[in-house]
Simulated assay, not measured.
Amino acid sequence: MALEFVVCLRKDDTGDFSGDDLQLGRLYELVEKDAGHGMLRIIDESGEDYLYPQSWFDSVALSLAASEQLAKALPHR
């Protein structure tokens, strides 16, 4: 199964959401594309999966080979 990734474009601190565990321009593994209420679930810098606003990210298209290689290389897999 191919992994999906998003790139972080914003990390505003907006009340309940903190961007402390995000880096602008970095790719993050997408765990759940539509987690409801305009949110998505990613694995952030903490190594855990958390909900973040979809507006902070954009999807990234990777080849199947690149996705599989990253799946093998990621420490949390």
Rank of each mutant, 00 (worst) to 15 (best):
Glu48Arg: 11
Tyr28Cys: 05
Ser67Met: 01
Glu48Leu: 03
Asp49Lys: 12
Glu32Met: 03
Val31Thr: 04
Ala66Pro: 00
Leu51Arg: 07
Ala66Gly: 10
Leu40Pro: 03
Gly25Cys: 03
Tyr52Phe: 08
Pro75Ile: 08
Leu24Met: 08
Gln69Met: 14
Thr14Asn: 14
Ser46Trp: 05
Val31Ser: 09
Gly47Tyr: 13
Ser59Leu: 01
Val31Leu: 07
Leu70Gln: 08
Leu24Pro: 02
Phe17Ile: 02
Asp49Glu: 15
Leu24Arg: 07
Leu64Thr: 15
Ser18Asp: 12
Tyr52Ile: 00
Val31Ile: 13
Leu30Ile: 14
Arg77Gly: 12
Phe17Leu: 10
Ser59Val: 00
Ser67Cys: 03
Glu29Ser: 02
Val60Thr: 05
Lys11Pro: 02
Ile43Gln: 04
Leu22Ser: 01
Val7Leu: 01
Leu30Glu: 14
Trp56Ile: 00
Ser46Asp: 06
Leu30Lys: 15
Asp21Thr: 03
Met1Leu: 13
Val31Pro: 01
Leu3Tyr: 10
Glu4Cys: 11
Leu30Asn: 14
Glu29Asp: 05
Asp13Arg: 12
Ala2Tyr: 04
Leu27Asp: 00
Ala71Trp: 07
Arg26Asn: 01
Asp44Ile: 02
Leu3Pro: 02
Lys72Ala: 15
Ile42Phe: 06
Leu30Phe: 13
Tyr52Asp: 07
Gln54Glu: 15
Lys33Arg: 14
Val31Asp: 09
Ala73Phe: 09
Ala2Lys: 12
Leu51Phe: 06
Ser46Cys: 07
Gly19Leu: 08
Cys8Gln: 03
Leu40Ile: 10
Cys8Asn: 00
Asp20Trp: 05
Tyr50Gly: 06
Ala2Pro: 14
Val31His: 11
Asp21Leu: 01
Ser46Lys: 09
Leu74Asp: 12
Leu9Thr: 07
Leu70Val: 03
Gln69Pro: 08
Ser63Tyr: 08
Leu3Lys: 12
Leu70Phe: 03
Val6Tyr: 00
Gln23Glu: 13
Gly25Gln: 09
Ile42Asn: 04
Met1Pro: 14
Phe57Thr: 05
Asp58Trp: 02
Asp58Ser: 05
Glu4Gly: 04
Leu24Glu: 06
Leu22Thr: 03
His37Ile: 01
Leu40Met: 12
Arg10Asn: 03
Gln23Ile: 04
Leu40Arg: 12
Gln23Thr: 05
Asp34Phe: 00
Ser59Met: 10
Leu24Asn: 05
Ala71Asp: 13
Gly15Ser: 08
Ser67Asn: 02
His76Ile: 05
Ala66Gln: 15
Glu32Thr: 10
Glu48Phe: 02
Gly36Val: 01
Ser55Ile: 13
Ser46His: 04
Leu9Ile: 02
Asp44Glu: 09
Leu9Ser: 04
Gly38Leu: 02
Asp44Gly: 02
Asp12Phe: 03
Ser18Asn: 13
Gln54Val: 14
Asp13Lys: 06
Glu45Tyr: 04
Glu48Asn: 11
Asp34Glu: 03
Ala65Val: 11
Asp16Glu: 12
Ser55Pro: 03
His37Cys: 07
Ile42Leu: 11
Asp58His: 09
Ser18Arg: 06
Asp34Lys: 09
Asp13Ser: 13
Ser46Gly: 11
Asp20Phe: 00
Val6His: 09
Gly19Cys: 01
Glu68Asp: 13
Ser55Gln: 14
Gln69Ile: 12
Leu62Val: 06
Leu9Gln: 09
Glu32Phe: 01
Ser63Gly: 15
Asp13Trp: 01
Asp20Met: 06
Ser67Trp: 07
Arg26Glu: 08
Ala35Gln: 01
Asp12Ala: 12
Arg41Met: 11
